[in-house]
Design a binder for these strands. Structure first.
Length: 917
RNA sequence: GCUCGGAUGGUGGAAUGGUAGACACGCAAGACUUAAAAUCUUGUGACCAUUACGGUUGUGCGGGUUCAAGUCCCGCUCCGAGUACCA
């Protein structure tokens, strides 16, 4: 009986589908376990061999947990809104919904072949109105909420209105865009529109004029995590800063909770570190600088309040609202020139060019501590978005201030004894203070403490914690996204009635912005609500992906996002597998989104993902041929140095073990039809390199081809065998024969001369030892996500059982169940052939029995270092297992035991671990 | 610049402080075959020795702790990832 994987895999795929084998329901008799993959964006290119890596790992874990008696939720869906489909629509006129649907179908076909245990009845798509209804619903909730720092939670905005009517906004410790104060009387005197404008200052989803990353090429704004080094992450187009009226989410209100929550979850340290850096908590003080001769107070944030005696100038960000008030008339022209120059610079140019630039306003501020007059400058090295958009400059102890001071010849006052500031600033927080009045003689840390006390006591400022985390810009000037359930009356936004959700995305004729520069939705006919115009922007990609894991728990519910019953059973995700690229985007936004829902008691857990694993990227392994310049002759790798050659990428699919298939090469490209070759040992050897897997490098390997040639079980095993899950590693089809051989050997344990031959005889000690070693190892490995060593263990066990000529039913049954998580198809087939009525995933993972691994009591002689020798009495449990042994006799042990005879020795066979005297 | 990872044969990679290189690929030799493929067997870090037994050396570099270090500590080098005028 041959191992015919094509037939087997097709059969069970259909069976599982027809019998809804992987459908899962709430079962209160079983403990739940929720395993989630980051759902894919269905791109037009389809899956390559790197994409399923994480899915295979999560599937192995899901199947294992199920075999261990858990009720496992393991769903899959599609992050279906996104830029590529829309860009394609702009170029071709093809509606993004159609492209998306096609891509989804293709993904599904590819995924099904690999044998995942997803419960497809829970599938979600973010572009589906029944799904985005709940995205819009959460947005409206955020619109209707403010954040209270005292309660540490989101509260309904109606409460805030009540408080305003009672006491104004005095003494309220709440999240806000800018500090404003008013009394109850002032509030009551305001018009409805004014009141609405004030509320915008507090709403969690709010509309405000903010500096945004504007990407002209994409025609939309982007969030901070969608921009890298001044270029858009998608497409790599330049991004510029622009002030625009945009929707934002007040993520910053949750900064501290997002930071604290990291201690409660089981993520890798590096990922937590990335998030900590992104949140960027820094403790310091806000200092008040009075402007000379003007009724203006500039607040600045600093972590180095100790250096306040060394402030020799101040700097405002060019976008600062104070700029216009501080510029004296005689300097107006020069300032305008500078501001215009700054405006023209893109983010990228600004990063690339770090030369000091700036302009003096003509105004002076007064140092709150010693009253010194300080010139106020403007420069784009100060960011409008961080702190207050203004800084106190201490050139002696801050390298950026130092560069600026040197360039404009401003004074530099050293504040730390022995610090040489003639060539560069002294930024370290160490040393003894000088030139600092009452701080003289203190260490830096003492000085920071003392000056903070002084500032607070004398009302010169206040203590403050600042966060780098910005509010998330939530508007996109695009078509293919969730419409905002917002309409405008008298220029102010109002919420669409919840009962009218979902507000469906309208049809439009072209997917470009309108002639007047409005977003594509400006083209929609009758895009109004109760006669009022609707919002024209759509939501960004992270809107739909922020709470998708909740929707899987109750995907068909039309009454609420997720029912209490479902959420209280499934709770949060126990294991989440996906790439690190979402560290500062999706993984921050969904934690924020979840905490918001938690504040309202909509979800039971305050963190969405308990354990998170980042699978590594699978890189491509490219092959090269070497063409002799100005010829059509190709020279083999080992001889290429003898000629003047150009390396050319060659399709990895026509290369095997770096040996080129010459005929296939000639057919691959008409240009090479007449190619000639200089061979070594009759072969053409290709060079190779590890690169990103991409079409242009001709190194893309399609999982469909692997499944076709080797079977899905082999693909699954091989992807795991390639190396540690979390590590990036290159795909190299060459090694796949090893696992393919293993599966054939395994299959052959069941057959002899084409007949199934499984005996019911009692297994021997060796057979039991072999299988229980495997059971122990696999259980341990899966719990630790060490799947590559698992595959090795399977190979060892099959080799042992083959050598023992083992065909015992009990042994083989255990092997099948243990292998079932990794290779579900072949396991199911053999399981049924053994006469089982139910599917293998309803079996129980075998218990490992320690007794089988023990050997008989024996006397061993342990030699140590050529000097001491002990005769010991112990039983060997397994190699490297720690054992306590009694010492029967000893010799030459003076050297390190002073001649004493030890009572016991803890050993690993042949090695001493510990000696008990 | 800062933060976090990593460095082990020809290759991918194994090693709770305890026989370094599991397992696999590749390679070599052999068996089967008219031949090739497939399959099976054996060998395979390097160096030396070889009739055999064996010996030396070896986990990026330099130190240290320990009876014992790929593993722990200190100082470097190189590579990768993230982040960056964040005051």
């Amino acid at each position: 009986m041959e191992y015919n994987f094509n037939e087997i895999e097709k059969k069970w795929q259909e069976y599982w589908k027809k019998n809804r084998t992987y459908q899962v329901k709430i079962d209160k008799d079983k403990p739940k376990y929720y395993v989630l993959d980051m759902f894919p964006y269905p791109s037009g290119a389809g899956l390559h061999v790197g994409h399923p890596l994480g899915y295979i790992a999560s599937d192995i874990y899901s199947r294992y947990k199920r075999l261990k008696g858990f009720n496992v939720l393991h769903p899959m869906g599609y992050d279906a809104y996104g830029l590529p489909a829309e860009q394609y629509a702009i170029q071709t006129g093809q509606h993004p919904a159609i492209t998306t649907e096609q891509n989804i179908n293709r993904y599904r076909r590819q995924l099904d072949k690999i044998g995942f245990s997803f419960d497809w009845e829970r599938e979600i798509r973010t572009c589906d109105p029944s799904y985005y209804k709940w995205t819009q619903w959460v947005f409206l909730h955020m619109f209707d909420s403010y954040y209270c720092y005292d309660e540490q939670q989101a509260r309904p905005i109606s409460e805030l209105v009540e408080m305003f009517e009672l006491q104004g906004n005095k003494d309220l410790n709440i999240a806000q865009t800018e500090e404003i104060t008013f009394t109850a009387e002032e509030w009551k005197a305001k018009t409805e529109k004014e009141k609405q404008e004030i509320l915008m200052n507090y709403r969690i989803a709010y509309l405000a004029d903010t500096m945004v990353n504007w990407c002209p090429a994409l025609g939309t704004v982007l969030a901070n995590d969608e921009v890298s080094e001044g270029l858009s992450v998608r497409g790599g187009y330049p991004v510029e800063q622009r002030k625009m009226r945009q929707w934002s989410l007040r993520v910053s209100a949750y900064a501290q909770r997002l930071l604290d929550g990291l201690d409660k979850i089981d993520w890798t340290e590096s990922l937590k570190e990335t998030q900590k850096n992104w949140i960027g908590r820094s403790e310091g003080a806000e200092l008040y600088f009075q402007v000379k001769n003007l009724d203006i107070r500039l607040n600045v944030f600093t972590t180095r309040a100790d250096t306040v005696f060394g402030v020799t100038f101040m700097v405002l960000a060019p976008e600062s609202e104070y700029v216009s008030q501080l510029v004296i008339p005689t300097r107006q022209a020069e300032v305008n020139t500078y501001l215009n120059a700054v405006k023209r610079r893109t983010e990228r140019e600004r990063i690339a060019d770090r030369k000091a630039s700036g302009v003096f306003t003509g105004s002076y501020a007064l140092n709150p501590i010693n009253g010194a007059e300080i010139p106020i400058w403007i420069s784009d090295y100060v960011l409008a978005g961080y702190g207050t958009g203004a800084i106190m400059a201490v050139p002696a102890h801050d390298s950026r201030d130092y560069t600026f001071a040197k360039h404009f010849n401003l004074p530099i006052i050293p504040l730390i004894e022995g610090a040489d500031v003639s060539e560069e600033s002294f930024d370290a927080k160490e040393g003894m203070m000088i030139n600092s009045g009452f701080l003289n003689g203190l260490s830096v840390n003492e000085a920071i403490r003392k000056v903070k006390e002084y500032i607070v006591e004398n009302n010169l400022g206040k203590l403050k914690v600042n966060y780098r985390l910005r509010d998330a810009i939530f508007s996109r000037q695009r078509y293919w996204g969730e419409p905002f359930p917002i309409y405008y009356k008298d220029g102010m936004p109002f919420a669409v009635d919840v009962n009218d959700l979902p507000l469906q995305l309208p049809e439009i004729d072209k997917f470009l912005p309108t002639e007047t520069g409005e977003p594509p939705l400006g083209r929609a006919k009758n895009w109004t609500y109760k006669g009022y115009p609707l919002e024209l922007a759509t939501m960004p990609g992270f809107a739909g992906s922020s709470a998708y894991y909740l929707r899987y728990e109750d995907p068909a519910n039309t009454q609420c996002l997720v029912s209490k019953e479902s959420n209280e059973y499934w709770r949060n995700v126990d294991l989440y597998i996906g790439g690190t690229e979402h560290a500062t985007g999706h993984l921050i936004y969904s934690r924020f989104w979840n905490k918001f829902l938690y504040d309202y008691g909509i979800v039971a857990e305050d963190e969405p993902f308990k354990k998170l694993i980042n699978q590594g990227m699978i890189q491509g392994r490219s092959n090269f041929v070497y063409r002799i310049k100005n010829s059509n002759t190709f020279v083999s790798y080992g001889l290429k140095n003898q000629y003047d050659v150009t390396p050319i990428h060659v399709d990895v699919n026509i290369v095997s073990n770096d040996i080129l298939d010459l005929d296939a090469f000639k057919k691959w490209n008409p240009e090479y039809k007449t190619a000639e070759f200089i061979l070594e040992d009759g072969k053409y050897i290709c060079g190779w390199a590890i690169e990103k897997m991409s079409k242009s490098m001709f190194n893309v390997v399609n999982p469909d081809d692997i499944v076709e040639k080797y079977g899905a079980d082999t693909l699954r095993l091989y992807e795991m065998f390639l190396g540690p899950l979390e590590q990036s590693k290159p795909w190299d089809t060459n090694g796949i024969d090893g696992v393919s051989r293993f599966l054939r050997k395994f299959w052959n344990l069941f057959f002899h001369a084409g007949e199934l031959i499984v005996s019911d005889d009692q297994p021997t000690v060796e057979e039991l030892k072999s299988i229980h070693k495997l059971i122990k190892k696999i259980g341990h490995d899966i719990e630790n996500f060490s799947f590559n060593t698992s595959v090795a263990a399977f190979m060892i066990c099959v080799n042992e059982l083959t050598a023992l000529n083992c065909h015992k039913r009990s042994i083989l049954s255990d092997f099948i169940v243990v292998l079932a998580s990794f290779a579900p198809f072949v396991s199911e087939e053999l399981w049924r052939r053994l006469g089982n009525e139910t599917t293998v995933c309803d079996a129980r993972f075998p218990d490992f029995i320690e007794e089988y691994l023990k050997e008989n009591m024996a006397k061993y002689t342990i030699s140590f270092d050529g000097r001491a020798r002990f005769v010991l009495d112990f039983s060997v449990e397994a190699k490297k297992e720690e054992i306590e042994a009694t010492v029967l006799s000893h010799e030459n042990s003076q050297k390190w035991l002073n001649g004493k005879r030890p009572k016991k020795i803890i050993i690993v066979p042949n090695k001493i671990v510990n000696i008990v005297l």
